[in-house]
Design a binder for these strands. Structure first.
Lengths: 343, 343
DNA sequence: CTGTTAGCGCTTTCAG
DNA sequence: CTGAAAGCGCTAACAG
């Protein structure tokens, strides 16, 4: 019942024999070498077909010194990796580009950074995309002197081409919008403050407020934990700590914002009349939240696309920008649209 | 500024030279061959270290006829593939198992099934996991006679080890529960009715109702489209078509259920008092929906784990079950808990 | 236009 | 215990 007498895979030699040519001719025909007589080429192709022949990518790679595989390493301190929808989107973008270039995607969500170097030095991949900021500096340093091209996504490091989102700008845009809406008592909620992206968003938020002469109280910044109700917990803490509740809240991401909204409403405050609320991400549900959630959007898929595109450029021997910063875009919805205009 | 004078990667020959041994000895030392003098082994290992040497996976694979790569092909008629959280979970499970076995995951979301056969015949992977039911029968037939092990996930095919979820059971469980709750006018909503899993759920639902002497009207089955509001549209259609609104609704998945809930509430009906509602999936938000959503849960990650586990077994030459059916579990929450007991 | 041949870097007999 | 040599399947000179 097992796979007993299966014929061993055909090799280029079998094809040559059947087509009554030399193996070099087979190779040439397969590589679209112009110097092959049409009749010969046809015979070869027929033989391949008949034998179900496909070149061994291993042998070919060994000879050519390339695999057509691209490593994608996802490094995240906080997650079951691929389960994080953020990374899923990024990978989607990567895949899109690689597929167009006939490259294969070797996915690796390594716990230990050392494995990353191993991956690179084994010759299993032609290039490497490192996604996320959970990589130790020493690893990145070694990657910098690796023999194959490396591109960083959602993480920046001197000497390695990097594609990032302007998370600071996200914070500044949120601040600007909340200031314009008349906010005076600001707050920031997040699931955690370890995530560098969240910190950057907070940083931009705080900076923009300061520049406008406003102030973000220390007691108005809270992290509520990485479970689904992190935003809720954070918001509750802030409401408990502050004498007067805030009237302008920026959440590090949309889930936190939605969850924080529950705490605000539970306290009997209205959104946006009493509290204006802005998140980040523009996840699908944001538009269908009650009330529809204002947010700062950026192109997650584009992160993957750019990174993959640059890697392909590097593989082709071309130069690429050292740092690419993708913009963010404020999306105003009802959760922060109290006083500004009709509707 | 480009990578000019980078030393070419060290080979086993460089190591041999530096350790003052033959290349065979290096190979043996690296493969933990017992017949190597400890002192020699140490010298070899030192030399490797010093040279930053790693065996070429290509050369090794060519010799050994294996790559340690496992192909994961996601076939879905309806999706940006990896963006579908369902598949993301499955991949998470696969990854978990493969990482433990030191295999690499080659991700491939092929549009054309033919590419799948190519992948298999190129020798790029040692085995293949095919996820989802978007694969043509003829492709599966060819896969059945492929030279390497193939395991199907969330899809079943005679002659290929398959791991599936009992979607019919999900439908039956929902029916049983809604019947027990006193439902009399049943309805089914989905985003589409092409998805074989959705059809199986409907099928189980319908069958169980029939067996209980209840009836599912044709006008009470609707698909509303694959956008976010598919359930809403479907529910509206049913409410428009039926004279009396249904009092027991089964949705093909949780998003459809949530979306359908909006339509029910918009119509002025209460959940669960007027309409009991059950979904499938138990996505995160289900528990925090208003009202909390009853649903049928199954282990998505486990699908991936089982499939990957079986593939590893096959690679080790062991036999595996032809068909594995993962169970589903009813989770009762407020959306269907009108009359049955306190609270 | 086509065939012969030499490796790519590794593992594995087969001899020492 | 260790080394020399063959060869995995392919490509790319180098000759015809």
């Amino acid at each position: 019942m097992a796979a007993v007498g299966r014929p061993p895979r055909a090799t280029i030699r079998d094809v040559a024999e059947r087509a009554r040519v030399g193996i070099a001719t087979v190779s040439r025909a397969l590589n679209d070498d112009p110097g092959v007589a049409p009749a010969t080429r046809a015979r070869v192709l027929d033989a391949c077909e008949a034998l179900g022949f496909r070149r061994s990518s291993l042998a070919r790679g060994l000879k050519l010194g390339a695999t057509d595989n691209i490593g994608v390493a996802i490094m995240s301190r906080h997650a079951p990796v691929i389960l994080n929808p953020f990374y899923a989107e990024v990978i989607g973008g990567i895949e899109e580009v690689l597929e167009g270039a006939d490259k294969h995607l070797l996915l690796s969500s390594l716990k230990r950074g050392g494995d990353l170097l191993a991956l690179v030095n084994e010759g299993r991949v032609d290039g490497l995309l490192v996604v996320g900021c959970g990589v130790a500096h020493e690893i990145l340093e070694q990657l910098r002197s690796a023999a194959l091209p490396v591109v960083l996504i959602d993480n920046a490091f001197e000497g390695l081409p990097s594609v990032v989102v302007d998370h600071q700008a996200a914070g500044r845009q949120a601040a600007g919008h909340l200031l314009a809406g008349g906010g005076t008592r600001f707050a920031f909620v997040a699931e955690n403050l370890d995530n560098p992206n969240f910190r950057a968003r907070l940083d931009g938020f705080r900076t923009a407020l300061r520049e406008a002469g406003a102030h973000l109280d220390d007691g108005a910044v809270a992290a509520g934990g990485d479970s689904w109700d992190g935003g809720f917990v954070a918001m509750q803490r802030i409401l408990g700590q502050l004498g007067t509740p805030p009237d302008a809240v920026f959440a590090a991401n949309d889930p936190a914002a939605m969850s924080a909204a529950k705490a605000v409403l539970a306290r009997g405050l209205r959104i946006p009349e009493d509290v204006a609320l802005v998140g980040v991400d523009d996840i699908h549900l944001a538009a269908h939240h009650a009330p529809p959630l204002s947010t700062v959007r950026f192109d997650k898929r584009g992160l993957g696309r750019s990174g993959a595109g640059y890697l392909l450029e590097r593989l082709a021997g071309r130069d690429v920008p050292a740092l690419t910063v993708l913009p963010t875009e404020l999306v105003v919805r009802a959760s922060s649209r109290s006083g500004d205009g009709p509707r």
